[in-house]
């Protein structure tokens, strides 16, 4: 590389390095370091007593409250991701392959608009629907299906519905992008060669959709394990979610060390999920990014 080019690269590197080091790498290392220390009174921090320990991770493993919430969060996120795929796929396919020009644009806008609405507002909407004097109960009572109004909030299932509602749109757009790039004549060629529509789906469409599904899946999963708003509004005290555990260590229990350990566990889970999905489908990160 000529000297001029090297100098230019070095100058361009500066903001990237500041960004990556100060906002990502060092903070996350700090978090990891903090999670490997005792929760000491402030005057003992930095003294000889402040040594590395696995006590916080030990607490996570031994306290069933912690790991049960963790597993529930993980399980729910997987379910939400799968449900989102099932719900989103026909819609994405309709947009990409069935709708013609103007209808495609209309459908796209119709789906983009709720996508742009804030997560808090979308979740608040469900509070209004599911609360004791909410829309759902009023409808049920009006139809005579229910006598005594009960609140549908503060249940795990409610949280799962809220998350699916909030995040499934993140599945549609990557799927739409890959399906749109699928050459329609491939589908026609398969049909021409005698493939039943299920076979077309299985052998032509789904394989092509994998990068989009992976991108969308990663987004939905990340948002589901990482959300605070949805369980906070819809779950309340009745349905505790993992991010709430983290939040409480930082703001209620003031045990930043344990909170850091929880955060790191969540980070590790996210990384594992990403790597796992990419490995499972044998695709490169770049294709996923292109799809999303």
């Amino acid at each position: 590389m000529p000297r001029r080019t090297a100098a230019a690269a070095a100058v361009l590197m500066l903001p990237a390095l500041l960004w990556v080091l100060l906002l990502l790498v060092i903070p996350q290392f700090k978090m990891l370091d903090l999670s490997l220390r005792f929760n000491l009174p402030i005057e003992q921090v930095g003294t000889e007593a402040d040594v590395h320990t696995l006590v916080n991770y030990h607490a996570f493993v031994t306290n069933p409250l912690y790991w049960k919430v963790f597993l529930k969060t993980l399980y729910s996120a997987v379910v939400i991701t799968l449900v989102s795929f099932l719900v989103a796929f026909p819609v994405a396919y309709a947009m990409a392959k069935l709708a013609s020009g103007s209808w495609r644009r209309r459908l796209l806008i119709l789906i983009l608009i709720p996508f742009w609405v804030n997560e808090i507002v979308r979740t608040y909407a469900w509070v209004l629907i599911l609360t004791e004097h909410g829309v759902l109960n009023q409808v049920l009572q009006a139809l005579g299906l229910m006598q005594e109004p009960v609140s549908h909030l503060y249940r795990d299932s409610t949280v799962v519905i809220g998350m699916t509602y909030a995040y499934m749109l993140f599945m549609i757009f990557p799927l739409y992008a890959v399906l749109e790039s699928l050459d329609t004549s491939l589908i026609e060629a398969a049909q021409d060669l005698g493939a039943h529509w299920l076979q077309v789906l299985r052998h032509i469409i789904l394989p092509h959709a994998i990068p989009g599904a992976a991108a969308g899946g990663i987004m939905v999963f990340m948002l589901s394990v990482g959300t605070f708003v949805v369980p906070s509004f819809l779950g309340g005290k009745g349905a505790l979610w993992f991010v709430e555990l983290i939040y409480r260590r930082f703001y209620d229990a003031l045990n930043w060390n344990l909170g850091s350990a929880f955060s790191f566990i969540l980070l590790a889970l996210s990384m594992l999920f990403v790597v796992g999905v990419l490995r499972l489908f044998g695709i490169a990160v770049r294709r996923v990014i292109q799809a999303s």
Binding site: L23, L34, G226, I246, F250, W256, G259, S260, S263, S270
Partner: peptide, 16 residues
């Protein structure tokens, strides 16, 4: 950061 839960970004920078 595109595939890191937002809370992690927040928590780690809070600590830093």
């Amino acid at each position: 950061p595109l595939v890191t839960p937002g809370v992690i970004l927040g928590v780690s920078m809070l600590i830093f």
